[in-house]
């Protein structure tokens, strides 16, 4: 089962991965903030991840890892 992982401390909360990029729409920005003051991306339901890597590809940091 593919799994996506957000590196919260690397994330700048830009939201680029959180709109129509994810085909199963499981990425949102969290309400909490990281130590830089950004709202990090968060996974709502990892069981749906297809492992496509689109979120990783658009992440400028990159603060995303995808596993299988």
């Amino acid at each position: 089962m593919p799994q996506v992982k957000i590196l919260e401390e690397v994330c700048k909360g830009c939201g680029l991965c959180c709109d129509d990029v994810c085909p199963v729409n499981i990425l949102i920005l969290a309400n909490r903030i990281n130590s830089s003051g950004y709202h990090p991306a968060e996974v709502t339901d990892n069981t749906k991840c297809t492992g496509c890597g689109y979120c990783f590809k658009i992440c400028p940091e990159p603060a995303i890892e995808v596993y299988k």
Binding site: G13, L16, Y38, K57, I58, C59, P60, E61, P62
Partner: peptide, 11 residues
């Protein structure tokens, strides 16, 4: 800055 395209190209 957050959302800057430079980082995507760097990757």
């Amino acid at each position: 800055c957050p959302g800057c395209g430079h980082g995507i190209v760097h990757r």
